[in-house]
Amino acid sequence: MIRYLFNRMLLSLKQRYHYDVQYQQDILTADLGAFLKFMGFQAMSSHSGNLPAGPLYATRLRAIIRDDCGPCTQLVVNMALEARLDPDMVRAIIHRDLERLPEEIALVVNFTDLVLAHDPEADDLREKIQARWGQRGLIAIGFAIGSCRVYPALKYTLGYGKACSSVIVTTTSVVPIN
């Protein structure tokens, strides 16, 4: 019965975001305990702290682009649009077009990319992040960076990371810039 309920939840996710949930269904079928742990991880990945939607999705997009080649990025794009981010801003985040982004979004895009590259220049930007959103905001960014990387790793491990594609922002096809 519990597997049935979880599968219904996954099918709802699939329908809402047009996202292939087969890898999650496979986990559910093979190992309920592993699936329950995966669901616990979902709580971490949905944490937003005190970050507004713009900086939160800028972080999530830049992090997912680093490890994904389409489907997971499309999911985050769809979620960002659902959170009412401007499509032009989403495209600018994907293209890393800092001149077209508000200052706080460009800050988060730069910081996320530097963190992902293990670049010590992230230290200077970390102070700006903390000054703007405090330690709670920094933690939310850290959770977003870390959690966005898990999904592609899990999909590739299970054999579902082979479908590379561009992403669609409203009606425009966009190729992510890593």
Rank of each mutant, 00 (worst) to 15 (best):
I2S: 09
R3C: 06
Y4D: 14
R16I: 01
Y17V: 10
V21W: 01
Y23D: 07
K37Y: 03
M39P: 00
F41N: 05
N50L: 05
N50R: 12
A53F: 01
Y57S: 08
A58C: 11
A58I: 01
R66C: 13
P71Q: 07
P71Y: 12
C72G: 04
A80T: 03
A80G: 11
D86V: 00
P87G: 07
D88L: 06
R91F: 02
A92M: 10
A92G: 03
R96E: 15
D97Y: 01
D97A: 12
L98A: 05
R100K: 09
P102E: 11
E103N: 04
E103W: 03
L107E: 04
L107Q: 05
L107R: 04
V109P: 07
L114M: 03
L116E: 04
A117F: 00
H118E: 15
D119K: 00
D124P: 01
L125R: 00
L125N: 08
I129V: 15
I129G: 08
I129F: 04
Q130L: 08
A131I: 06
A131Q: 07
A131H: 06
R132K: 13
R132T: 08
R132D: 00
R132N: 03
G134W: 02
R136S: 14
R136H: 10
A140R: 06
A140V: 06
A144E: 13
G146R: 06
Y151S: 08
L154T: 11
L154H: 08
T157F: 15
L158E: 09
L158F: 07
K162S: 10
A163E: 14
A163W: 02
I168R: 15
I168K: 15
T170F: 02
T171D: 13
S173Y: 01
N178Q: 13
N178F: 08
